[in-house]
Amino acid sequence: MTTQVTRPGQPAGPGHGINLHVLGPIVALLVLIVAGALMNPNFLSYANITNVLARSAFIGIIAVGMTFVITAGGLDLSVGSMAAFIAGLMILVMNLLVPSMGAGISVILVGMAVALGAGLLAGFLNGFLITNMRIEAFIVTLGTMGIYRSLVTWLADGGTLSLDFGLREAYGPVYYGGLLGVSWPIIVFLVVAILGEIGMRKTAFGRYCAAIGSNDQVARYSSVDVNRIRLLTYVGLGLLVGIATIMYVPRLGSASSSTGVLWELEAIAAVIIGGTMLKGGFGRVWGTVVGVLILGLIDNLLNLTDWVSPYLNGAIQGVIIVLAVILQRENRPEG
């Protein structure tokens, strides 16, 4: 497609010096930040930044795991429902234990263990069906998406599961508290993102994911255990959904059938905005983090300004997502 670089309106090309493929998401993020600062003086306040980062953390933690799944040529549509189900399960178990163990740290630790265990199992189930049973990832996770969504509705009897009031006091600091003025969800998101970045760039696992995503036959001939690596990406994603749920439950202390709706699409959108290829073969964890921040900031900006009807929020979001992807399209080898 080298003939296309001289097309009018496309400034990028060989010799241009700036690689928009890499910078695209960052440019979009910067534009949003500058626009936000100009439109509302409170935008850059400590409280607002903390709000946006903390509420983006759930999608962010999940999206890091999603980056690996997509890089290895897979997809997971079940994460939002899975998070709702794990949240419901966690609340039920913790409420059950309060009479015998008291509303303290020990119950919270059990709850966290339940969340991590359930996440691992759910991820393993997805991965097992996809790799060993050889069913399309789209179909498997579409199925489990419906299953978990129904299960949480059933657990909650169609209503809302609420955490025991005493426990809520004890557990609340996990979302609202923090270290040196940085709240816990932000810290956890940061640690997950850094580990993810290292995992993607520096480890054999990351390279195997990319190899499988670009051509699983070649990877297989190069003695990569394709099924095992793929399974691991889903298990890892399940674990991260568990971690995200641990951070989510203390916020409102409740779970219902409307918990985590569309999280899967937000996570996938963040991954793609960040420059990971939807068809697999190339993944960028830091890009995913930028993608998550872009999505979080758009929502925040639309709430902070009045110049667009709230009916159009979805349209603005859509336009910015598409623009962010267009920005980084040009230098890609296949256009």
Partner: peptide, 23 residues
């Protein structure tokens, strides 16, 4: 001062209210 859609949803309402408080 302002009206935004919280979609009869706890999480959306939490987010919208945080932003109202910032604004």
């Amino acid at each position: 001062l302002g009206m935004e859609h919280g979609n009869w949803n706890r999480d959306d309402a939490f987010t919208v209210m945080q932003d109202f408080l910032s604004k």
